[in-house]
């Protein structure tokens, strides 16, 4: 399970996922409260430092940050307009954009420096108080089963698309989706049967 994780040996990589998750939550709240452009600038610098510490080029965070900048192109002018184009309007809009950037970059840093397995384990620990309602074994099984099923379903989608191309048919999305869903359900039946055969019948 590699995912978006960037392998490394930095302090940030080695820190326990649960600790990082806690710090991230605290940081998010603090960033949300910032009302001074200077403090925000300091935080931005701190984020850049953290990326340097993790040995991750900020470009690695681009796929996560990029789409948000596009939304800012819309959101900043709207905010200025709402504030009547005043100087305060620009300050508010700038602060909002900066806060968003810092928060997104921090969350992305967490994802880039923490393996999926470690995050899932952290989730499991957080779920412990709810063990009366949530069976950790079943959750673990479902998670593994889903990761196993993704290539299986991707293969089904590919085969259905190929079959359509082979017939030269230019069918609707419905004509594509029905066989994909029905074949996925049959695959689920077969997997359910295999789970039972392998001793998971409780």
């Amino acid at each position: 399970m590699i995912g978006l994780y960037r392998p490394g040996t930095s302090l940030l990589h080695r820190a326990p996922a649960l600790l990082k998750l806690g710090l991230l939550a605290v940081a998010m709240v603090l960033v949300g409260l910032v009302a001074d452009p200077l403090v925000l600038a300091g935080e931005l610098a701190a984020v850049v430092l953290l990326y340097a510490l993790a040995g991750i080029p900020p470009t690695a965070a681009w796929p996560q940050i990029g789409p948000i900048l596009w939304i800012l192109l819309f959101a900043v002018p709207v905010q200025v307009l709402v504030a009547g184009g005043s100087v305060e309007g620009w300050t508010t809009a700038g602060l909002m954009a900066g806060r968003l950037l810092v928060a997104v970059a921090l969350a992305a840093l967490f994802t880039l420096t923490t393996t999926v397995t470690a995050v899932l384990e952290a989730f499991q620990i957080l779920l412990r108080p709810f063990h009366r309602w949530v069976d950790a074994d079943r959750v673990g099984l479902l998670v593994a089963l889903t990761i196993r099923c993704i290539p299986l379903v991707a293969e089904i989608v590919r085969e259905v698309l190929d079959a359509r191309r082979a017939r030269g048919a230019q069918g609707s999305v419905v004509a594509l989706a029905v066989p994909v869903v029905v074949r996925s359900l049959y695959a689920a039946d077969a997997i359910g049967e295999a789970l039972a055969a392998r001793g998971l019948d409780d």
């Binding site: 593994a144 077969a190 295999a194």
Partner: peptide
Amino acid sequence: FIFTNPDNQIVMP
């Protein structure tokens, strides 16, 4: 039990 299609029998990643 061994099934015809091992793809459906393999349940782990």
